[in-house]
Structures are given as structure tokens and as C-alpha cells.
Simulated scan of single mutants.
Amino acid sequence: MDSTFRVPRHALLRAKLTLIRRRETDSATFRRVLAEMGAILTAEILRDLPEAMAGIETPVGPMDAPVLAAPEPCLVAVLRAGLGLLEGARMVLPDAPVGHLGLVRDEATLQASEYVVRLPRDLAQRGALVLDPMLATGGSAIQAIARVKQAGATSVRFACVVAAPEGVRALQAAHPDVPILSAALDERLNEHGYIVPGLGDAGDRCFGTD
């Protein structure tokens, strides 16, 4: 892995990941904790956004204070499971435009196909943070980021909860300019393309489906 991939040293993030990894964690708890992780990951991956100084008035007096030098990035959720991270990301950036990319993976070929694309119009000015809990084979992430770039985004970041080495390498090869943040780097993919040890199907566990 090169410098575009990072796993933060964050005790809260690791503890929350352990909770959603547990087989016995119910759907409501999974969804809540996934949102909490989305907030932490969003704050972490955007920690180096460019800043400027602006004059403000506090209740006590004037000061020069840091503000963002550019508009907040758009938040783009890869459906369905990305909605869980999006809920937390919007707590951090409540005014950011939101996009949705619907991708479904063929369980035989492991390739992703689109079923919905709804992206903000100002991606070129804002850039994007793409959210998807799982980076397994990398196919969905690669396709989602390509779509966001096609829509005009020149600055793109990707955040996930669990990544497999195979997916990280594939995403880095396809989009070497995109920073990747994950709460964990797991061991490998199994023969069905699932991350080991992973946490199962994030969409099913988030929304209580089989």
C-alpha cells in the first residue's frame, strides 16, 4: 500500500468497528454505529482541506479565524450501504450537496452495474467524498469514482469501513490520485469476493434484509 491509503489510529473508530463486526449486533445498532463511524471518517479524511483566514466577531471581541478556503465537498453515497455512512457524514457537513450512485454486484462475475445515478451539478467546484462501507474487489468503488470524475469532479476522496488488500490495490491502480481512508485493512477476499474477517453484507445488516 502506498501513501494514498490510510488507516487512522483512532481508538473510538476501532471500538465501533468491533461492535458492527459482531454477528449478534442487531440491525438498529449496526445502522446507528455505522452512522457514527461515518461522522468520524468524514472528519478524518477531510482534515487537510485548504483553509483561509477571515475576520469575525466573538461575544468578547474581533479576531482572525480559520475558515474553509473552498466550498465543502459533495457527499456521494454508493447505494445501499453507503447511506449508513452518509447519515453520519451529513452530521459533519449538513450543508454539503448529496449524490447517490446505485450499483449492484453480480455475484457470479463480481462486476458492478449501475441502476441509478443522481449527482450534484457543482462537483467541478466542490469535489466529492465517495462513501461505501466495503472496499472488497474494488469494482464498485472504481466505477463510482469514475462516474463522479465524469460528472466533473477533479478532487475525489474515498472513505470506507473495511478494506481488503485486493480492493485497495485495484482502486489505487485505477485512480492513483484518490486518497483512501478505511477504519481497517482486513486479511483477504474469500472465493465469493467477501472480505475476511469482514462484517458480512453491510447493506443487509444495515437495513435488516437477507
Rank of each mutant, 00 (worst) to 15 (best):
R6A: 15
L13R: 01
R14D: 15
T18P: 00
R21M: 13
R21P: 08
E24A: 15
T25D: 12
S27A: 15
G38Y: 05
A39T: 00
I40C: 03
L46N: 08
L46S: 04
R47W: 13
R47P: 02
G55P: 04
V60T: 07
M63C: 15
A65F: 15
P71Y: 13
P71E: 12
V76I: 15
A77N: 06
A81R: 07
A81K: 08
G88D: 04
R90L: 14
M91Q: 15
D95H: 13
G99A: 06
H100T: 00
L101K: 01
L101N: 01
T109S: 15
T109R: 09
L110W: 07
S113K: 12
V116Y: 14
A124W: 12
Q125N: 11
V130Y: 06
M134A: 09
M134R: 01
L135W: 07
A141Y: 03
A141E: 05
A144G: 07
R147P: 06
A163V: 02
P165A: 10
P165R: 05
G167V: 04
L171Y: 06
A174S: 11
H175T: 03
D177V: 06
L181M: 13
H192R: 14
G193F: 08
D201P: 05
A202D: 02
D204K: 00
G208N: 04
T209V: 09
T209E: 08
D210C: 11
